[in-house]
Amino acid sequence: MATKKTTAKKATTKKTATRKPATAKKAPAKAATKKPATKKVAAKTTGKKMSALDAAAKILGEAKEPLNAKTMIERMAAKGYWTSPGGKTPHATIYAAILREIQTKGKEARFTKTDRGHFTLNQ
């Protein structure tokens, strides 16, 4: 059976807190100014990369039939909507993300599972 080692506690001395003199004043804080949104800012936000789920919704909107995850990934990459950042199984990731959206949002989800592994847009 293992035994515990005990160590003697060292005596510590308490230091008294030092206070700043009451005459010291803080510099006044500058008010934050907001710049109005311009057309240039709006143009930059539309140039953002599309998320995988947004790209999947766009691909399914263009498709006439339900698609599986591998086909969606191939079409997303071919059209340049979204590319995998280097993962080995992007089809499994998009499959899980679509199922998670269906599970959490219910009837408001963008996707519907039509068959085993196949999805279409919710109408």
Score class of each variant (00 low, 15 high):
36 P>I: 01
77 A>N: 01
26 K>G: 07
95 Y>C: 06
26 K>D: 11
95 Y>L: 13
87 G>N: 12
118 H>L: 15
30 K>W: 07
76 M>R: 09
24 A>K: 11
50 M>N: 06
86 G>I: 04
85 P>S: 11
42 A>V: 12
20 K>H: 13
61 G>P: 05
99 L>I: 14
31 A>M: 09
24 A>T: 13
77 A>L: 03
40 K>I: 12
114 T>M: 15
97 A>T: 05
29 A>N: 13
61 G>W: 06
66 P>G: 04
57 A>L: 07
97 A>S: 15
56 A>E: 06
44 K>Q: 12
92 A>Y: 14
104 T>D: 14
105 K>A: 11
16 T>C: 10
119 F>W: 02
35 K>H: 06
62 E>L: 15
99 L>R: 10
54 D>E: 14
106 G>C: 00
47 G>Y: 11
94 I>N: 02
15 K>W: 09
36 P>M: 03
89 T>W: 12
36 P>L: 06
56 A>G: 01
52 A>D: 08
55 A>F: 00
114 T>W: 13
90 P>V: 09
86 G>K: 09
84 S>V: 10
97 A>I: 07
56 A>D: 06
62 E>C: 12
91 H>T: 05
79 K>P: 04
10 K>Y: 08
80 G>N: 08
99 L>N: 15
76 M>E: 10
90 P>W: 01
89 T>H: 13
35 K>M: 01
36 P>F: 07
111 F>M: 04
33 T>S: 13
107 K>N: 14
41 V>T: 14
32 A>V: 12
36 P>E: 15
102 I>F: 04
103 Q>R: 15
93 T>C: 01
46 T>I: 12
41 V>C: 06
34 K>A: 09
109 A>P: 00
52 A>W: 08
22 A>M: 10
19 R>C: 04
